[in-house]
């Protein structure tokens, strides 16, 4: 990047580092941090809406719907989440391909599961074998985001379900006394008041979501973990003009600090919001806390 970088072997340590840290691959590494932030920004609202509808389903009067909502919440909670991540990525992929297979190749007679293979007709492959590399990457991101949203949606559903129950009954009864319909009570009284009760839980969830992003690596995304492993590994002079030993420890230290900063700053920010929103309200028993256990 700098003009003196042409002959790195001759440089002093500091200049060598400035050259080393501005190579092309390092910019991919820095970009992957933005990637993490981007995925957080996309996943959070989707997970929140999944959670909202999950909670509506769970408190529905219709029994199958309420069972579905409650089952969704319960199953995701009892099992290690990483198992879910590994499971959903394959399951979703196969599910989509199977649906496309049914729609696009109705005359296909071979079984889809042949021994240890999952074979759909070529036209149903996702993404298509002929698709460019970027489509493959986008598809991987899409699957990862849906997986995250599904798992975190269940947690959000749990929080929102609890928050809906926490809204004082008297508020709803008053609304009824004023002649509001159930629909009106839900949207005009319950939902606006529920958020304040949901906020401690949701901010907790946000912290957990931040800390879950390195798991993207397991879903086959070239994220911060991927790059830290790639760049940190031992490099010999044959393949790069910046040879170095095993520096993976330092790269992961950088990641550790990045995540500490993320959780620290969002904790500060969420505390501010909570203070602002609860000003003058009696919120006994719903104390703000970003710990996972006393929330």
């Amino acid at each position: 990047m700098f003009s003196y970088c042409i002959e790195p072997d001759a440089l002093a340590t500091f200049q060598w580092l400035t050259c080393y840290l501005t190579t092309g691959v390092h910019f991919s590494f820095y970009l992957s941090f933005l990637n993490v932030l981007g995925i957080l920004a996309v996943t959070a609202p989707i997970a929140l809406s999944f959670g909202f509808f999950g909670a509506i389903a769970a408190r529905s009067q219709i029994v199958p719907l309420s069972l579905l909502g409650k089952g969704y919440i319960a199953v995701v909670r009892g099992v290690p989440d990483i198992a879910f991540f590994l499971f959903f990525v394959i399951a979703l992929d196969q599910g989509f391909e199977w649906l496309r297979h049914q729609a696009l190749c109705p005359n296909w007679t071979d079984p889809i599961r042949q021994g240890n293979d999952f074979l759909v007709c070529p036209r149903a492959k996702l993404p298509l074998g002929t698709a460019p590399q970027t489509v493959h990457q986008l598809y991987a991101y899409g699957l990862a985001i849906i997986t995250f949203a599904l798992v975190f949606g269940a947690f959000a559903a749990n929080v929102i379900f609890g928050a809906m129950l926490a809204v004082p009954k008297a508020q709803l009864e008053t609304a009824e006394a004023y002649g509001m319909s159930q629909h009106q009570i839900f949207w005009r009284i319950l939902v606006p008041q529920m958020w304040i009760y949901a906020l401690p839980g949701l901010s907790n969830l946000w912290q957990i979501l931040i800390k879950a992003t390195p798991l993207l690596f397991l879903l086959g995304i070239e994220d911060v973990v991927y790059w830290a492993r790639e760049l940190g590994g031992t490099k010999t002079a044959r393949f790069t003009s910046f040879p170095h030993g095993d520096w993976r420890m330092w790269y992961f230290l950088a990641l550790l600090i990045f995540y500490l900063f993320m959780t620290w700053s969002s904790e500060k920010f969420l505390k501010k919001i909570m203070q602002k929103l609860t000003k003058g309200q009696d919120m006994a028993g719903t104390a703000m806390s970003t710990t996972r256990d006393f929330s």
């Binding site: 800390k211 879950a212 390195p214 973990v225 990641l255 550790l256 995540y259 500490l260 620290w264």
Partner: peptide, 8 residues
Amino acid sequence: RGSPLFIQ
């Protein structure tokens, strides 16, 4: 508590 266990 502030960093992911995975990174740790």
